[in-house]
Design a protein around this nucleic acid. Structure first.
Lengths: 214, 214
DNA sequence: GCGCGCCTTCACAGTTTCTTCACAAACCAC
DNA sequence: GTGGTTTGTGAAGAAACTGTGAAGGCGCGC
């Protein structure tokens, strides 16, 4: 389990910290809370830190999650393995709070370029993830950040039906408490903008279920 | 002076190693040989490792040089300073050869594919990396070092959106603790200068995301 | 030691965007 | 058609974000 002391150091530095009791609960928490960074130890009850790392790096949904591994000095042997399995950085214990915070910050900053230069298309709609611009029929669309994210979500999976709650999860992030009807307003504005730059409304409203593109 | 033992470990791992006797000679060697990576200790005769780091990071020409700092365990106090001045990574001694090699490789991997002596262009903007000068419409721009680096970063990838944190990482170097809003001020000044030497503002502000060129 | 240039922070104003609300419109089942 | 739900949408206040001038600090060259 993650040291209570280190946790309080991190909290003091402004991080929002959650601790898991063991490797298994860590997996659950990661899925539920979608943290920005994971700190783990080599040895955990249940799933080992290395095992946990390997699992997380194997999934697309958590591959981008930066992992910082803590190791005791006797763990030298495992260092190579830890790096190979995908830990992004590691430190030897004992470690000062200042160092831990510094490394955490470095990882977080480095991790940002997650959305690699993708270019999504659906019919006459184009979404450029690198430049954060969207077009319809070649015309640049003026969208707010939230509208852009919603459009990107839809274009990524044309045809898929998204419920309001799912959109809140994906676009706003997990654990946001916002009136689901707010989604209506954003989708409405998005539709309006799209209609103004092309023929017809590419969205479908599925009564009782949500929205879909195409 | 850099440990002869570690040097031989590194050589064995395939690195090409040169050692300097002191901080001053290190500066010279770096200028002469343009190494891909610098390993230094906190304390050196002449210029201290921290001082050396600061100087190298302050210069545009050596800013990209990855620096790995070695520290004894009693150096905890200086750790904060070491990071602040811009060391890219550091390890505590004693350190195993395997870890040193791993960290060195990680740094090199992360290091930017050399942009030495290049000439970057975007529309009427020209950035000469060799002479460290920038022009718009043929006119020489008077820019501070930071502004120059920001401009170079943008011109290198036109259109790409850079978040404030990414810019801090790329321009200021990793492990710098600076208010992200400071980026605004520099970008603002850069814009002002550019506007004064050409038509229009080539930059885009992406609300909630960062800045982009074009 | 001093002036200068550059960097960093801060505060405040101006905008844009978000969220909620209320009501009208659309839809569905009977 | 009627009643009950669900959705579309304009408006408005709230919240968040950015631009910018000014102040203070720091290192560097003279």
């Amino acid at each position: 389990m993650f040291s209570r002391l280190l946790a309080s150091d991190l909290k003091e530095a402004g991080f929002n910290v959650s601790s898991a009791r063991c490797g298994d609960s860590a997996m659950e928490m990661i899925e539920d809370y979608a943290p920005d960074l994971l700190m783990t130890e080599r040895s955990l009850s249940g799933v080992s830190g290395i095992e946990l790392t390997r699992k997380l790096k194997a999934r697309t949904s958590t591959r981008q999650l930066p992992i910082l591994m803590l190791a005791t000095n006797s763990d030298h042997v495992d260092l190579a393995r830890a790096l190979e399995t995908g830990a992004d950085d590691f430190v030897h214990k004992p470690v000062s709070a200042i160092e831990l915070v510094a490394r955490a910050r470095a990882l977080l900053r480095r991790a940002k370029p997650t959305t690699v230069g993708e270019r999504l298309e659906y019919e006459d709609i184009v979404v450029e993830m690198e430049t954060l611009r969207a077009f319809r029929g070649g015309q640049l669309l003026k969208l707010g950040p939230t509208e852009f994210n919603i459009l990107a979500t839809f274009v990524e999976k044309p045809g898929r039906v998204w419920s309001r709650d799912q959109l809140l999860d994906v676009v706003w992030g997990p654990n946001t408490y916002i009136d689901p009807r707010t989604v209506d307003v954003h989708v409405g504005r998005l539709r309006k903008t799209l209609r103004a730059h092309g023929d017809g409304d590419p969205f479908r409203t599925i009564r009782g279920a949500g929205y879909a593109l195409g």
